[in-house]
């Protein structure tokens, strides 16, 4: 299986032969996923609806309802699958949800501060002071053009589709994870918002951080230039290559690639 050229770069996320089925029924969804994201790299996953992209992101972040029947997933050499979701987050994993969740009654600001401090505590660090937190979040929100009023509102409640996605990136910027998974963060964004979000992501790109960007559209990849592009179909990575692979999909669809893979 192809995972881009072999390098001796540091592995951030390493998934080997991952098989996943639904807990409640015998429905296999992931059928042997192999994927390695190196620190400092951006990998993109494209693939038809229902191929298992979101499932992969959920399983990596520890959502209930799935059962891993085979294979492994490690973050910096540490077994992810044994950890609770909050432990994975504290270890540096972040998932920007395809469908961000509304939480009535919990203020966005309270939510973020609780999250930042919980992660710090888990890593044995001191809590951030209220003043420092405020300063930080104001700056990051400004970069993403999220106004102060949105920070006070309950998490994602009454946010537009695009606002929800920007709010995901704000969380990412505040939490500074090592491994960022973005599940269709571009869908629902207008052209300007896409630029904002991409700038937010690019600002976080550095040698110590890995990205896995799930998308249906080449357009996002114009802004966030991937190092490697993977095609997922029917629970497997069926093809990997450089940025040109995304262009091929954009022009020709998945037909040829799928035919070639089977």
């Amino acid at each position: 299986m192809l995972c881009g050229p072999e390098t001796n770069e540091e592995k951030m996320l390493e998934i080997k032969g991952l098989h996943v089925k639904l807990e409640e029924e015998d429905k296999p969804i992931l059928k042997g996923v192999d994927l390695t994201v190196e620190a400092g790299k951006v990998h993109a996953i494209m693939g038809p609806n229902g191929s298992g992209k979101s499932t992969l992101s959920y399983v990596l972040s520890g959502r209930e309802g799935y059962e891993v029947t085979q294979g492994s997933a490690e973050l910096e050499g540490v077994d992810l699958l044994e950890m609770e979701p909050e432990e994975r987050a504290a270890a540096g994993l972040f998932l920007a949800f395809q469908y961000p969740v509304e939480i009535p009654g919990v203020g966005n600001m309270t939510f973020l501060r609780t999250a930042v401090n919980a992660q710090r505590k888990a890593r044995g660090e001191d809590e951030i002071s209220a003043a420092d937190f405020l300063k930080l979040i104001r700056q990051k929100a400004k970069d993403l053009q999220i106004d102060a009023e949105m920070l006070k509102r309950p998490v994602n409640v009454g946010f537009s589709g695009g606002e929800k996605k920007r709010n995901e990136i704000l969380q990412m910027a505040m939490l500074e994870p090592k491994m960022c998974i973005l599940d269709e963060t571009d869908s629902g964004l207008d052209v300007d918002a896409m630029k904002l979000v991409s700038d937010g992501v690019n600002a976080l790109r550095d040698a110590g951080r890995g990205f896995l960007v799930i998308t249906h559209y080449q357009r996002l990849l114009d802004h966030i230039k991937p190092d490697v592009v993977h095609i997922m179909a029917d629970g497997r990575i069926v093809k990997s290559g450089g940025p040109e692979l995304a262009l091929e999909v954009e022009h020709n669809g998945y037909g040829d690639i799928l035919a070639e893979a089977s």
Binding site: S61, G62, R63, E64, E84, P85, E86, R88, A89, A90, F94, L95, F97, P100, V101, E102, I103, P104, G105, V106, T110, F111, T114, A115, V116, A118, Q119, A122, P154, Q171, L175
Partner: peptide
């Protein structure tokens, strides 16, 4: 909602309390 909070690093108990207070 509980998973969303936990995925951001908030431990299960604390996340449950947050949702309960909400």
């Amino acid at each position: 909602a509980l998973f969303y909070l936990r995925s951001r690093g908030v431990p299960e108990g604390e996340a449950t309390d947050l949702l309960t207070l909400a």
